[in-house]
Simulated assay, not measured.
Amino acid sequence: MSDLLLRTDAGAVATLTMNAPASLNALSDAMLAALKAEFARLGADPAIRVVILKGAGKVFCAGHDLKEMQAGRAAPDRGRAYFTDLFARCAEVMQMIPALPQPVIAAVHGIATAAGCQLVASCDMAVAAEGTRFGVNGVNIGLFCSTPMVALSRNVPRKIAFEMLTTGAFIDARRAAEVGLVNRVVPAGALAAETRTLAETVAAKLTAAVRIGKRAFHDQIEMTRAQAYDHAAKAMVENMLWRDTEEGISAFLAKRAPDWG
């Protein structure tokens, strides 16, 4: 366990805290590796019945680390191999969450954008603080959120998902609850306590029943998840190689308007 991802166990509930507030808890290469390693440990830990996932600092998670992604373009292939590997690793981490024997609850505050919104959608349940905003807003910088789309479209009605993906618009916590992205919305000061109460309620149930039920739930509702991630990842790699996407991300990082011609 590194300082990048903190784990605190209290009874049968483990809390994972993404601890990179300076980068808005971006899903960097290191963060993805830390999440993968800890999910693997949790999956083999019979003492833990429920997992809470949250972010340190002002936000839950702002998605992929765009600076790392841009740096990947320095390779002779302009980043194709890196992007292919990145989206495969991200998809693997996202799929580990429903595959865990324990229910995973996201405690969300601030913003959850792009792959951060994907992370919320990948969790079994989510509690959001009032004022939290959710978006799959990559289209605003020229990168359609193809892989986040997989989890999002399995959580919310397809027309809502498509609107979010094509407009890049944010929805607030209340709207997120209305469309099924989160289970409940609570005052910001009550987020930790309310999430803990939900976790303890689930943890108090028969562990074997919850574990077999979780597996059955995901098996029957998302039979094509892996195929969808493979397809979406390839689309995202192609998208990352576009000149306008490169310009869009560069403009975003430089805090200027993109020159898309």
Rank of each mutant, 00 (worst) to 15 (best):
K234Q: 15
N155R: 13
A193G: 10
Q220R: 10
T167F: 08
V182R: 10
F170M: 14
D219P: 08
K159S: 13
E130Y: 07
W242D: 04
D172M: 08
E246N: 13
L152M: 12
M236E: 15
R225N: 04
R154D: 00
T113R: 14
T201P: 04
R133G: 03
G168N: 03
T195N: 02
E247L: 00
D230M: 09
A216K: 10
R215M: 03
F252Q: 12
G180R: 05
F170L: 14
A121Y: 15
W260V: 05
R154T: 01
A216Q: 02
A203D: 08
A114V: 00
E130G: 03
R175L: 12
N155P: 02
D172F: 10
V156N: 00
P258H: 08
V185N: 07
E194Y: 09
D230Y: 05
Q118I: 11
E194D: 07
E247N: 02
A188H: 03
D124E: 01
A257F: 11
D124S: 09
T132M: 10
L152K: 15
R256D: 09
R225P: 08
F162I: 09
Q227D: 08
I212K: 03
H218E: 11
S153H: 11
A257M: 04
H218Y: 15
A204D: 14
R225V: 01
A208G: 03
V136Y: 01
N140C: 00
E247F: 00
A226W: 07
T201F: 08
R154C: 01
G248D: 05
R225Y: 06
A176M: 03
A216F: 03
N137S: 04
L253M: 03
E178M: 05
E178S: 05
E238Q: 07
V127G: 06
A209T: 07
A177D: 11
D230V: 14
A173L: 12
D172H: 07
P148E: 06
A192K: 10
R256W: 02
Q220H: 07
D172T: 12
F162R: 13
V179K: 08
I221W: 15
E238A: 13
R175G: 09
T113G: 01
C117V: 10
D219H: 13
L198E: 01
E222R: 14
G189C: 03
L253Q: 11
S153L: 10
A176V: 06
A114D: 15
A228I: 11
M125S: 09
F134V: 02
T166L: 00
V156C: 01
E247S: 00
E163D: 15
M240F: 13
A129Q: 09
A203C: 08
L198V: 09
N239A: 07
L119M: 09
G142M: 06
M149A: 15
A169E: 15
V120I: 09
A151I: 04
P157I: 01
E130A: 05
M223I: 02
M240I: 02
G168R: 04
W242E: 04
L165R: 07
R211L: 10
E194A: 13
G168C: 06
V127W: 13
C117T: 14
E246I: 06
E222C: 08
A161R: 14
G261C: 09
G180Y: 06
Y229D: 04
G138N: 05
A129E: 12
T224D: 14
M149E: 14
L165N: 05
G142R: 01
M223Q: 01
K214V: 00
A209N: 06
